[in-house]
C-alpha cells in the first residue's frame, strides 16, 4: 500500500471512529452508569469503567419499580401493532400489485401521499376521536392509530410487484382462494420485506414517546419510554444508577433483536426496492 493510500484509509477510519463515538457516547455512558455504585456516579473525574460491577442498580430497577410492567406493556403494544399492520398491509399490497380493479392507480397514489403526512398532523384528530368513543387510556388507544400503515403497504407492494404473476395464476389453478394466495404464497415470499418492516415498526413504536404521552395517563399502560418519565418523576432524579439500569433494560431488546436480524434486515431493504 502506498503511503498516500495508507493516509487516506487512516483518515477515513479516524473520521468514522469519531462519528461512531459521538453517536455511541451517551449509550456507553448509560451502560457505564448502570453498572456503577452510587458513590462513583457523581465524581469530579471521568471514569468510564466502574471500580466494581454494581448489580444492585438492575435489581432495584426490576424489583422496586414498575420497569417490568413497562417492558410488558411495550411488548403488548409493539406486537399488537405489528400483527395488525401485517394483517392488513399484506392483503392490501397484494391487491395493489397483482389485482386489476378500477381506481387502483389512484389508491396507490393515495398510499404514496399518505407516506408524506407526518403522524403528528393526525395525532390531534385521532385523540379527539378516541376521546369521543372513550378508548383513551386503553391498549387499543396505543395500537389502533398505527394499524393502517402506508409505509408497510408501500414496502410490501414494491416487493410483491417483483414476483411474477404466473406464480399466483398457478396458485389459482391449484385451487387457492385469493386469501389463501396472500397468506400461503405471497406472505412467505415477502418474508425479507416483512423482517425489514418488522424492525422498522418495532423500533418506531417501542421508542415512541409522543403518542403514549398523549393517549395515556395511566401509569399501568405506560410503554417503556413513557415509563422512564414516570420513573424519573417519582425518584426525583437522585437515583441515577437504577434509572440508567432501567434505560439499559429498555434499549437492550431492540439492540439484541437488531443484531440477530441484521443480515435479513439489510437484505429486506435491498429487496424492497428502497436501495439501489
Amino acid at each position: 500500500m502506498t503511503p498516500g493510500r495508507l493516509f487516506g484509509r487512516s483518515l477515513s477510519l479516524a473520521l468514522l471512529l469519531i462519528g461512531a463515538l459521538a453517536i455511541l457516547l451517551p449509550f456507553i455512558w448509560m451502560v457505564s452508569l448502570a453498572f456503577k455504585p452510587q458513590d462513583e456516579i457523581f465524581t469530579a473525574t471521568i471514569q468510564l469503567l466502574p471500580s466494581r460491577i454494581e448489580w444492585s442498580n438492575f435489581t432495584k430497577a426490576l424489583t422496586e419499580t414498575d420497569v417490568p410492567r413497562y417492558l410488558l406493556n411495550g411488548v403488548i403494544v409493539v406486537v399488537g401493532i405489528l400483527a395488525f399492520q401485517i394483517l392488513f398491509a399484506v392483503p392490501c399490497a397484494f391487491a395493489l400489485a397483482h389485482r386489476r380493479f378500477a381506481g387502483r392507480t389512484l389508491i396507490f397514489g393515495l398510499v404514496l401521499a399518505a407516506l408524506l403526512v407526518p403522524f403528528h398532523v393526525t395525532a390531534i384528530p385521532i385523540f379527539l376521536g378516541f376521546a369521543q368513543i372513550g378508548i383513551l387510556n386503553t391498549y387499543w388507544a396505543l395500537i389502533l392509530p398505527f394499524v393502517p400503515t402506508a409505509f408497510g403497504i408501500f414496502l410490501f407492494r414494491q416487493f410483491l410487484a417483483q414476483v411474477p404473476s404466473e406464480l399466483f395464476d398457478a396458485a389459482r389453478v391449484d385451487g387457492l382462494s385469493e386469501t389463501a394466495i396472500v397468506w400461503r404464497i405471497a406472505f412467505p415470499l415477502a418474508m425479507p420485506a416483512a423482517t425489514a418492516f418488522a424492525i422498522f415498526s418495532i423500533t418506531a413504536h417501542w421508542n415512541d414517546l409522543f403518542w403514549p404521552l398523549i393517549a395515556t395517563t395511566d401509569s399501568d399502560l405506560a410503554t417503556p419510554p413513557r415509563g422512564i418519565l414516570f420513573f424519573r418523576d417519582e425518584e426525583s432524579g437522585d437515583d441515577v444508577g437504577p434509572l440508567m439500569a432501567a434505560a439499559a433494560l429498555i434499549t437492550a431488546p431492540l439492540v439484541i433483536a437488531f443484531l440477530l436480524a441484521q443480515r435479513k434486515f439489510t437484505r429486506g431493504l435491498a429487496a424492497g426496492g428502497l436501495k439501489g
Partner: peptide
Amino acid sequence: KTAYERNIAMVFQSYALYPH
C-alpha cells in the same frame, strides 16, 4: 367457474413453482 372448479391443470412457461 374458476380454473379450480373447472379442474383444468395448467403448466406455465416459467414453471411457476412455489419457491418457499
